[in-house]
């Protein structure tokens, strides 16, 4: 099972670097970018840990994670694009996104 050690270590190093970027900023978009990338890495880490634990059928947790990551990022972006989370059908400009 130690075969996963290298990739887990690499992912942890990448997590550290991305967290540094998230802490440094400077703009809020940099932080959002780092958060999105950390979400992707966390997803991969989850998938790997299901294999380390010997229960690969729990990979769907990583799937849920990925979906949430996208929902979060889109919500943040929508907020900054329109200053508003919006309700579908209220503002027509929202359909352009």
């Amino acid at each position: 099972m130690m075969m996963y050690a290298a990739v887990i270590g690499a992912l942890l190093v990448a997590l550290c670097l991305l967290l540094t970027r998230a802490l440094l900023g400077p703009t809020v978009f940099d932080r959002a970018l780092a958060a999105n990338a950390i979400g992707t890495l966390a997803m991969l880490l989850l998938a790997i840990f299901q294999f380390v634990g010997g229960r690969p059928e729990f990979v769907d947790l990583a799937l849920v994670y990925g979906l949430l990551n996208v929902v979060g990022t889109i919500a943040v972006q929508k907020f900054f694009r329109y200053g508003d989370l919006g309700e579908p059908g209220v503002a027509d400009e929202e359909h352009r996104l």
């Binding site: 959002a32 950390i38 947790l61």
Partner: peptide, 27 residues
């Protein structure tokens, strides 16, 4: 806004810790 973003990162890390501790449903 930075706080919200960092909070999201915190949650992702927390959930990963919970998976490592084998608490899949809490994660």
């Amino acid at each position: 806004f930075g706080v919200v973003m960092l909070g999201g990162i915190y949650s992702f890390l927390m959930a990963t810790v919970l998976v490592v501790l084998d608490a899949v449903d809490v994660a």
